[in-house]
Amino acid sequence: MTDRTGADSPTGENSAALTAWLASLVHNNDNASLAELRRPRVQREPHFRALWYSPTEAQREIYGQVAFLFAVYHQGRAKPDYGYGSLGEAARRIGGGAVRGPDDPGAARLVDRIVSSRRVPWRHLQHAVARLRSCDRHPPSWARLVDDLSFWHDRKARISYEWGAAFYMPPTRTAPSTAAADLEKDSHA
């Protein structure tokens, strides 16, 4: 796999493997491991297992934190949700009724805080995942979240810009079937 700058990178394979392992915890009802992952200050075996998937030492924090976010989202859930889209696309699903995404003032403020941060905004990402969970909406793709956060500081990748654009851009007029499919997915969540 190549990264966002064109160089060879194992990131995609590793993030997919992390997601598969996390999903297996939900699928196998391993609530004890998921609970351990939700305790960020206490590092036990599940936390270290999440770090095993990191291709570099520099990315360990990202893998550990995304495992934490996954566990927060899946608390009390019986089926794993692999999510889809970027965090910006997922944030468009925050809200209720006809007021979602950019039309929801809380979601707009949250995305503004996330995309304006120079450092990875872990606390705001946790809030976004918690909002998606409380709205019963699909999360972002966990594997893509790992990959995006791995390039957070890469100016060429422009992750925060991409997330902001995905959140604020109006739906395209040429793909009404895609928008309907997204609404259908969300209604079955």
Rank of each mutant, 00 (worst) to 15 (best):
R4I: 00
G12A: 09
L18K: 00
A20F: 05
L25N: 03
V26G: 05
N31P: 02
S33P: 07
S33E: 00
E36C: 08
E36G: 03
R38D: 05
P40C: 10
V42M: 14
Q43I: 07
R44M: 07
E45P: 08
H47M: 05
F48Q: 10
R49P: 02
Y53M: 01
P55S: 11
T56S: 13
E57G: 06
E61K: 03
G64P: 08
Q65T: 08
V66H: 04
F68L: 04
L69M: 15
Y73L: 00
Q75D: 14
A90H: 06
R93D: 03
G96C: 04
P102N: 03
D103W: 03
G106E: 12
A108I: 00
V111S: 02
S117L: 06
P121K: 14
W122E: 06
R123E: 14
R123H: 12
L125G: 01
A130G: 09
R131N: 12
D136W: 07
R137G: 01
R137F: 10
L145V: 08
L149D: 02
K156R: 15
K156Q: 12
R158L: 00
S160V: 13
W163C: 01
F167K: 01
P170R: 01
T172R: 15
R173G: 11
T174A: 13
T174E: 09
P176D: 09
S177H: 13
T178D: 08
A180E: 06
H188D: 07
